[in-house]
Design a protein around this nucleic acid. Structure first.
Lengths: 156, 156
DNA sequence: AGATTTGTTTAGTATTGAGTAAACTAAATT
DNA sequence: AATTTAGTTTACTCAATACTAAACAAATCT
């Protein structure tokens, strides 16, 4: 179905950032992450990012701050250089997905508290919520296990 | 940390819909899903939804259409009644999460195509992207297995 | 100290999308 | 056929947010 690849780094960055944007992040958020996955060298300065992604200085400042706060990138200082460089943090790809998987845990909690309330009411049908809760607990536990296993198998 | 439960059905619906909203859906999207998880009876009319969720007729119409298209709810006709009722579709909770898990598959594809492009370039460092692709493939496969197993174990 | 470079913050623009009221359509009842 | 009921569509308002240009702050170099 998709045997074709991209024709430029920009194509990759665009596809990648569009997907990240679907999750509710700013477009530039995914652009920077995507670029840092393939750029050469792996660390990039303000001007590097501005030019290659065609974004403003303010955007670099704002979005790198977000990414730093979330622990997805880190600053790199180079001896004798004034500029700041940014690079992907080790394990950022895993961390990013792990955050997505928290959804199951959050919904487990919410449905669990909902069940607790329903149990105090009379004449309620809690079957639907019980099923939902059960499934979310399963998924939260098992996906957590998956990540653990992956990390263990890859010395992280 | 959260030993307390909710004090009303509305509290549950609000917490639930806020979480769904974080994923990029309209607020009312989660409100209707949440309400249909706990309402009595399980099928609800336009007026039911308007009153209990305090939303307009137009919103019920628009958002139920979205939910129908995505296969998360279904229409119920009752003999001799003119009104339409809506109820959660069997398996909608699982379907909803399965859609979330597609992210790993999508990112696997994108990184895979990125790697294919990089392989045609010279002097590129593709280690970062290879790692990302490997992880996403793992997660896509394994999470798919989880769902399959859950469905099998629960006769779905 | 003054000037230059580097990065941050502020203030403003523009776009997007949610939600609704009201107009409209379709169907059923009288 | 006329009227009421049920749901859809249209047109609009409002709020949130991304993004940037320009003003600002901080640090380094001469």
């Amino acid at each position: 179905m998709s045997p074709s690849s991209y024709n430029s780094k920009s194509d990759f960055v665009e596809a990648f950032s569009l997907k990240i944007e679907e999750l509710g992040h700013p477009r530039i958020y995914g652009q920077i992450l995507g670029w840092l996955l393939i750029c050469d060298p792996p660390h990039q300065s303000f001007p590097n990012l501005m030019e290659n992604l065609d974004i403003s200085k303010a955007s670099v400042s704002n979005v790198t701050r977000m990414l730093l706060e979330r622990g997805l990138i880190e600053k790199v200082r180079i001896k004798g250089e004034r500029q700041i460089y940014f690079k992907l943090k080790e394990g950022s790809v895993i961390d990013f997905m792990q955050k997505q998987l928290r959804l199951a845990l959050d919904l487990e909690e919410i449905t669990s508290k909902g069940l607790e309330f329903l149990s105090k009411e009379k004449d309620t049908d809690s079957k639907r919520l019980e099923k939902a809760n059960d499934f979310h607990r399963f998924l939260a536990e098992q996906s957590e296990n998956l990540i653990k296993k992956y990390k263990a198998d890859h010395d992280l």
